Simulated scan of single mutants.
Amino acid sequence: MEEIRVIAEACVTDERIYDIIYSVSIMTDEELREFRAKVVNYFMNRNSAEDMEAYKFYKVILEDNNAKKILELYEELKKQK
């Protein structure tokens, strides 16, 4: 849950992250499967610190409807500001 909160907070200050989360949140199940496969393929042979952080980010947003959860939390955070 901590990762979800951190990403939601990042969405408030970085529109690019918000755009990624939003795009993932509206994907169909088939699109999610395809995108997940592309992410795994892309990061398979990459091992820099930046690549590992990016992979963790995508892993979090692609599992368990987390993108939608992040957007819900994002909306709450925006109301608070």
Results as ranks from 00 to 15, higher is better:
68 K>A: 14
17 I>D: 02
39 V>C: 07
63 E>N: 08
56 K>H: 14
11 C>A: 05
58 Y>M: 06
69 K>R: 15
25 S>T: 07
63 E>P: 00
73 L>V: 09
9 E>G: 10
23 S>K: 11
53 E>N: 03
75 E>V: 11
47 N>S: 13
76 E>Y: 00
25 S>M: 01
13 T>K: 14
30 E>I: 08
45 N>S: 14
57 F>M: 03
41 N>K: 08
28 T>Y: 03
19 D>T: 09
78 K>S: 12
57 F>V: 00
30 E>Y: 07
60 V>T: 13
28 T>N: 08
29 D>K: 07
68 K>C: 12
22 Y>N: 09
16 R>W: 05
45 N>D: 11
18 Y>D: 08
26 I>K: 15
60 V>A: 06
40 V>Q: 09
17 I>E: 06
43 F>K: 00
51 D>T: 01
21 I>D: 04
31 E>G: 04
55 Y>H: 12
24 V>Y: 03
46 R>E: 15
64 D>M: 09
49 A>Q: 07
56 K>G: 08
47 N>D: 13
74 Y>E: 12
23 S>N: 14
41 N>M: 03
14 D>R: 11
23 S>W: 03
78 K>F: 09
62 L>I: 07
52 M>Y: 05
73 L>N: 02
46 R>P: 04
55 Y>P: 10
36 R>P: 00
34 E>P: 03
72 E>D: 15
52 M>I: 08
49 A>E: 14
74 Y>S: 13
25 S>A: 11
42 Y>Q: 01
23 S>V: 03
32 L>E: 06
51 D>P: 02
9 E>P: 04
17 I>Q: 11
13 T>V: 15
27 M>H: 01
23 S>Q: 13
30 E>W: 01
55 Y>S: 11
50 E>K: 15
11 C>L: 09
31 E>S: 05
37 A>D: 10
28 T>G: 02
43 F>Q: 01
78 K>P: 09
25 S>Y: 02
40 V>P: 00
35 F>G: 01
31 E>A: 10
76 E>H: 01
80 Q>A: 11
34 E>W: 07
63 E>W: 03
72 E>K: 14
27 M>F: 06
19 D>I: 02
31 E>K: 08
54 A>F: 02
9 E>C: 08
47 N>M: 07
58 Y>W: 14
70 I>G: 03
69 K>Y: 05
61 I>A: 04
26 I>D: 05
25 S>E: 03
75 E>H: 11
19 D>E: 14
29 D>L: 06
41 N>H: 02
22 Y>K: 11
34 E>G: 11
38 K>D: 07
73 L>M: 12
49 A>P: 10
29 D>T: 03
58 Y>D: 07
77 L>V: 11
26 I>N: 04
75 E>P: 02
12 V>S: 10
20 I>Q: 07
33 R>K: 15
51 D>Y: 04
69 K>L: 13
